[in-house]
Every structure is written in structure tokens, then in C-alpha cells.
Amino acid sequence: MQLQEKLTAREFVILAEMEPPKGTDTVAMIANAWAVKGKVDAYVIPEMSNAVMKMSSLGGALLLQSRGLETVLQVCCRDRNRLAIQGDLLAAQALGVPNVMAVAGEEITHGDHHKARPVNDLELLELLGAIQTLQGGRDMAGVDLQGAPSFFVGSTLKVTPRGELWDQELAAMDEKIAGGASFFVTQPIFDPGALAKLQESLNERQAAVIPTVLLLKSVGMAKYINRFMEMKIPEDYVNRIQKAPDRVRECVQIAGELVSALKAQGCPGVNISTIGWEDKLPAILAAAGV
């Protein structure tokens, strides 16, 4: 419950994405999470991000939640129909998961199981609606539940590289807020200054917008992102990594600086995404001074 309480009290929160393993060996996942216990407010458990098959987010969340580590369970529309989604939400709450984050899910063609059939029985707003329906004590068929869940609900928000919001995204955000979303996690942000302008307009809305800080892993990754994705990594960062004697350490330093800068400008929190380099989380937090 720490996440909700701290966001409500307008205290800075730190989320850390914790990818479940592609396999049954959970030692590294648990150890990486444990290494930042007390420094991270909640662990976001992605639901097969980029459509790459992994342990389910529900399984990953339970592994941490059962050890007293607060989790944010990602629930995505891509892989399950409305029965399965509702059933998993009930299971998650019954087993202690207090937060859920509704996401659409990357296209299956972007992942490693290209031949699979996507489900998308519910779309994002309908998924949020389904969560509200369950919290109201009924399922989507209108049947009474034996015990209703009560989640702290979030979703995603797409911000332009310049820290702007498209009109459509803003309208979608308002719909999501009306649908029960209390916090939003953005895609990776590399220009905290640009986000500051956005923060003012977002403050009018009753929802916390939490930017993602992505740990760059190499110059190649930064260049790839600049070339193919709707994100903009400043040249300064690319040059710094390129010239650094210890490039990994420089990447960690940059991520730490971004966390620190976003905190300084009044963001409600950050979501740190290390996509496979979760063991770098202690160093990032140390670099950020949080």
C-alpha cells in the first residue's frame, strides 16, 4: 500500500521494473529485487514486454509480493480474454497484490512468437472498466462476486520526445482517469526539462504521471532508439557513453542523473526500467542520491 499512500501524500516514489525470467529460475529476479528493498516503493512486473514470452506477470508479482515486496501487476489485453483477465485479477488481489497497471501490450509480431494469435478481447479502456466492475462487486457478466478486489490502478501515457502530449493522448488520459486510473507511467524520458512544461498541465488532473527512466546499455542502443523509436536521446548522453572509460558505469550514472533531475523538478516519482540489467538498480539509485 506504500505506493498509493506516498503518491496521495505527494511523496516522491520510486518504481522499478522487474522482468520475470524466461524460465523457472527465479533466483536472479528475487535477488535483484531484494537488493533494493526499502529503496524502491514498488516493483512493476511487466506482462511479457515486447511480446517476448516470459514467466507471467502474475507469477512474477507473486514471487515478490509473497516476500513482502510491494508490486504493481501489469495486466495486458493481448494475451487473455475477459474470463482469464478477471480470474487473474481476483487471484492477484487474493494473494496480496495491491496495485495493477492496465497496458495494451506490444504487437505479437514484435516479439519472439510471431505465429501466435493475439487475443485483444478487451481493449485498454474496457480493461479499466472491467477492473472497476470487479471492484464494484460484480464480474463483467453482472454476477455477484464473493469478495470484491480493491486495487490502486494505473495505466500508461505516451509523451512525445519533447515532453508534449498529443491531443488524442490527453483525451485518452482523461478517459482512463474517468475509468479509474490514478497513476500513469510514461515511456522513457531523456529530457527532464521538457517534461517540466507538461507537469504543470498535468497537475490539474487528479492523477500522478510517473516518467520512466530507461537504463541505456550502450551507444548502439542509444543510436537504435534515436533512429527507430519515438524517443530522443540527447547527443550529449551518446557522446558521454562513447568517451567514457567505463561505459556501463556511465550509463548507470546517466540513469541516476535523470532520476535525480526528475525528482528535483517535482515529478511525483520515477519508474526505472533496466530491461535485463536489474542488478544495476542499486548503483542507479546510489548515483541518483535517493
Binding site: 504487437e107 505479437i108 509480431t109 510471431h114 505465429k115 501466435a116 494469435r117 493475439p118
Partner: peptide
């Protein structure tokens, strides 16, 4: 392989 069906877009 469902990519040849509507599932591939």
C-alpha cells in the same frame, strides 16, 4: 502459424 490469418494484421 496464424500470421497468414487476420492475426498478422
Amino acid at each position: 502459424d496464424w500470421t497468414t490469418s487476420r492475426d498478422g494484421g
